[in-house]
Nucleic acid binder design. Structure first.
Lengths: 195, 195
DNA sequence: CATAAATATGAATGATCGTTCATTCATATC
DNA sequence: GATATGAATGAACGATCATTCATATTTATG
């Protein structure tokens, strides 16, 4: 078995275990057992438990930013931009709920240096939503009290689905995305036409 | 010093440490040190670390339900009920951010029996919001796709403030509550008059 | 096939975990 | 003032933690 398979298996199981039970509550022994190897071997692929967490979180946040930038290309005007942002955000979050949950929950498990880097990336993402809201507000398109607060409100709202969405649930992915798009558009005071 | 002071000091420091760093990442030694006592003494007040967590979470969820029921008394009609729900929810969450964060994050640290009880209480709370949304939708007052999904969207949105609100922040408590009330009312398609 | 590099093993490291316990201490009751 | 009680101490328990390492095995390269 080539090395890269083991490494990605470690990533996959670590993502699953850390997101399910928390970084601190999962031991390297458990992780190794889940992968089907012995504890020492993990250190051939990742220098420490902390480095493994950083790898998972950085991979996620970079992938999210990449998807975001691709989704926002050539989309003009606050209303269309907000719609594109919400669609991409919710779609991505439903596709990678574990990655999202881990990045959200385990910031506090990072040491100071690593946390600073991840937070900077997250702030960049939040800032891009804030800019859309500011622009919509200053043009009189959006009716909101405060762009910064509203950006955070929306991010919380749109991210929450990761905690309860199931593939075999009552509503499919597109229906849930649609609920969120509508809720977000209406939250800034826009009218959404009935389907 | 009477015993009750020590017990509440343990509660206070446990709430702080568990919410800041996570239940699994805080040791009984650290907790004891934060309280200013030795590790063994905690067990005179709580039979186990798990029991301490259950105590904190049950206290919170019951207090939230109590505040909720008081806030909803004699409030009639979906629009007024939604407004009352949001106001109470956000106010309570800004007052007790650590309690909220702990109850939200550490469900997975509870054993099966305790988790079942807490989840049942939380579902009761979520159900009451869902009922308001269903009622508003069926009367044609709210424009939402799905009451269950919208209830969860709103709860995520309204709970998020606990993760970033600071007493010395740019906006005061009432302003933040107002942002959330407006965002929530508009999210169901209601018009909110400018202040 | 030989050799080197990468990877896996499994035991061992010292530290720390939640919990227990015999003991001491302070306070309240009779 | 003797005694009972709840609380705090501080050492100790076995278990488990992340990590290291010498060794064995597998894989890739000549």
């Amino acid at each position: 078995m080539p090395a890269t398979d083991t490494k990605s298996a470690i990533r996959r199981e670590a993502l699953r275990l850390f997101s399910e039970r928390g970084f601190a509550a999962v031991s390297m022994r458990e992780l190794a057992e889940a992968v089907g190897m012995h504890q020492g071997g993990i250190y051939n692929h990742f220098p420490s438990k902390q480095a493994l967490l950083v790898d998972l979180m950085a991979t996620h946040i970079n992938a999210l930013l990449e998807a975001h930038e691709a989704a926002m290309e050539e989309v003009q005007g606050p209303e269309a931009q907000l719609r594109a942002f919400v669609q991409n955000h919710v779609s991505y979050h439903l596709d990678y709920p574990k990655d999202v949950f881990l990045a959200y929950m385990e910031l506090r498990s990072l040491d100071a240096v690593n946390r600073k880097d991840i937070v900077a990336l997250r702030n960049r993402y939040e800032q891009s939503l804030r800019t859309i809201l500011e622009e919509g507000r200053s043009r009189g398109l959006f009716r909101i009290d405060d762009a910064a607060v509203h950006a955070r409100m929306l991010l919380s709202m749109l991210t929450g689905a990761t905690t309860w969405y199931r593939d075999d649930g009552r509503l499919d992915r597109d229906a849930i995305v649609a609920c969120h798009v509508r809720g977000a558009m209406q939250s800034v005071g826009l009218e959404v036409t009935e389907p």
